[in-house]
Amino acid sequence: MDNYNTASVESVTKAVKRKEPKWGQTWREYKKNKYLFFMLIPVLIWYAIFHYGPLYGVLLAFKDFSPRLGIIGSPWVGLDHFKFLFFQSPDFMRIFRNTVLISIYNIVFGFPAPIILALILNEIRSGWFKKIAQSISYVPHFFSWVVLSGIVIVMLSPSEGPVNYLLNMVGIEPIYFLADTDYFRSTLVGTGIWKEIGWGTIIYLAALTGIDPTLYEAAVIDGANRRKQIWYITIPSILPVISIMLILSLGGILNAGFDQIFNLYNPAVYEVADVIDTYVYRAGIVGAQFGLTTAVGLFKNVIGIMLVLGANYVVKKMGQEGVL
């Protein structure tokens, strides 16, 4: 019996020593689920062609591009485009400031909006009313800014718009929302929230359905009212989702919304409405300054990556799940 026990211990010890390396286990998992990975091939091809392939064009940021010579044949200019943007361009700092300010306004006011709406919808006990409210809030998302901008222009018209008509009824002079630098940014943020608030609630409503109902039952037994249940149970339960969405939002902080601004702005509000994307359109598409606008895009992407990494680091330090 002693010999048998000794042999068993030795065999177990040898098996532990011969433990399969981690890469071997991973490869066996790949082989086991090979058909699932085959389904990923079209997605990988799409990303390779439309996301990684165009990275070749980043070379334009360091060249004086000529269509006749092509990207490879065009002469190198090094960091000249970046020097022009940061030290010589009379418009870039104003454009950069506008982009950051509009993006910050969108995050400060627009990011919490779908969370608040999701919490409100979650508290509605009438099923039919909840469905109608959700459907109405989703509708604007499915329209492009080309369509919605026409609606916004009509609604905010100083002469015929219903908004100014109501203001006139209470004795307030007509406001030129889309032609007044004092109101344009607020109008951008407000209409942006109106368009996306419903669609943004989908993720948070899905997160709310995953909360254990027994937590609320225990809170009721302890005497917690609805406000305390939301504050101490609901919000902490969806905090990981909120943190991930915030990280992703910070990554696009320099994407102030080209479609919306391009369809709503005009020369009267260029001072507060002109952003990086509209500048790239005018200089790159209209002015054919491809090297300069590529440098602007590269700068914007580098800032976005830095913000994502920084926000991810801070969120992890706070004990929440990050994206990396």
Rank of each mutant, 00 (worst) to 15 (best):
Y265Q: 15
V9L: 06
Y183C: 11
I244H: 08
G310S: 10
K131G: 06
N266R: 05
K130S: 00
A206M: 15
L248K: 13
I238K: 09
W76E: 06
K17M: 10
S66H: 09
P158W: 12
L250A: 15
Y313C: 12
L156S: 13
D277W: 02
L101C: 02
V43P: 05
V275A: 05
V139F: 14
F143D: 12
Q25G: 03
K130G: 01
P240I: 06
N266L: 03
A288G: 04
L250W: 06
V275K: 04
V315P: 13
F258H: 08
P158S: 05
T209D: 04
K300S: 10
A207K: 14
L307H: 04
W199D: 07
Y105D: 07
G24Y: 12
T209R: 03
N5F: 11
I104T: 10
G198A: 02
V302W: 00
T99H: 02
R282M: 00
I116E: 03
L59V: 07
G70V: 06
V170R: 07
M169H: 08
A218R: 02
I230P: 08
S135T: 15
S66M: 10
Q289F: 03
A179W: 03
I95D: 08
I303C: 06
L79P: 15
D182M: 13
N106E: 06
Q88R: 14
V77A: 06
S144G: 15
V12F: 07
K14A: 10
V77C: 12
K34V: 07
S89P: 11
T187V: 10
T201P: 08
T234P: 09
S249E: 09
P267N: 00
R227G: 10
K131F: 13
G319C: 06
L250C: 15
Y47I: 05
G190F: 14
W231I: 04
M306W: 00
Y216P: 12
S149N: 11
Y176Q: 11
E29R: 15
P236T: 01
V272R: 04
V308D: 06
K316Q: 04
G57I: 04
G287Y: 07
D80W: 05
D80A: 05
M155P: 05
G53P: 01
R94A: 04
I221G: 12
R185N: 01
K228T: 09
E160L: 14
G73W: 03
N312Y: 00
V12M: 08
P114D: 11
I242A: 08
K14Q: 15
K17N: 13
G291H: 01
R97P: 00
I238L: 13
F299C: 03
L148R: 07
V315M: 13
Y232L: 00
I230E: 02
D64R: 02
R28M: 12
Y4P: 06
T214I: 09
I124H: 02
A268I: 04
E29H: 10
Y204D: 05
A207D: 13
S243K: 14
I102R: 08
G251H: 13
Y30K: 09
F184I: 05
G291K: 02
Q260Y: 04
G252Y: 00
S66K: 09
S8L: 12
E20L: 12
S103M: 04
A268T: 05
R97K: 15
V163G: 05
L121Q: 11
L188G: 11
R94T: 08
N255G: 13
I253W: 00
P112L: 14
S135R: 15
N3L: 11
R68D: 14
G252Q: 01
F38V: 00
Q25D: 03
